[in-house]
Nucleic acid binder design. Structure first.
Length: 119
DNA sequence: TAAATGACTTAGG
DNA sequence: CCCTAAGCCATTT
């Protein structure tokens, strides 16, 4: 271990995404693009979507706190139904507009106070 | 290794 | 509010 910076990535993109998502506090939300940036891949918003789609069964993962840049929740899925996601968010005190969207100006997570492990 | 897929995003119409 | 076109990416075929 003669190096600390040129070391190989010991974590995959998906792993980092989950780590970031687990940092989102209760009552707050983050967008795919935001998570991508924090995970070290600013333009991989779509990759974050892929990671979340494959997250069924992952323990302790607040998947419902990840929404898109328009404030809309997941489009659907057996285990990720829009109504379910909305319900979970409302239980955390997040209110939706008539349009069914979340006001990011109010509920957007500011980001981690301390730096991330890989940054 | 190339092609297809999809919880994305921004800019326009 | 709904739809399309482009750009970008991880994952799966």
């Amino acid at each position: 271990m003669n190096s600390e910076e040129s070391e190989q990535e010991s974590t995959t993109f998906k792993e980092r995404v989950y780590i970031v998502v687990r940092m989102i506090p209760r009552g707050k939300v983050a967008t795919y693009g935001q998570v991508a940036m924090l995970a070290g891949r600013a333009r991989a918003a779509r990759g974050v979507g892929t990671a979340m789609r494959l997250s069924a069964g992952v323990v302790d993962l607040p998947w419902h706190r990840v929404i898109n840049a328009q404030g809309r929740v997941s489009p659907g899925g057996d285990m990720f139904r829009p109504e379910h996601q909305r319900h979970l968010l409302e239980l955390e005190g997040i209110s939706f507009r008539r349009s069914g969207t979340v006001d990011l100006k109010v509920y957007r997570w500011e980001g981690p106070e301390d730096g991330l492990p890989w940054e």
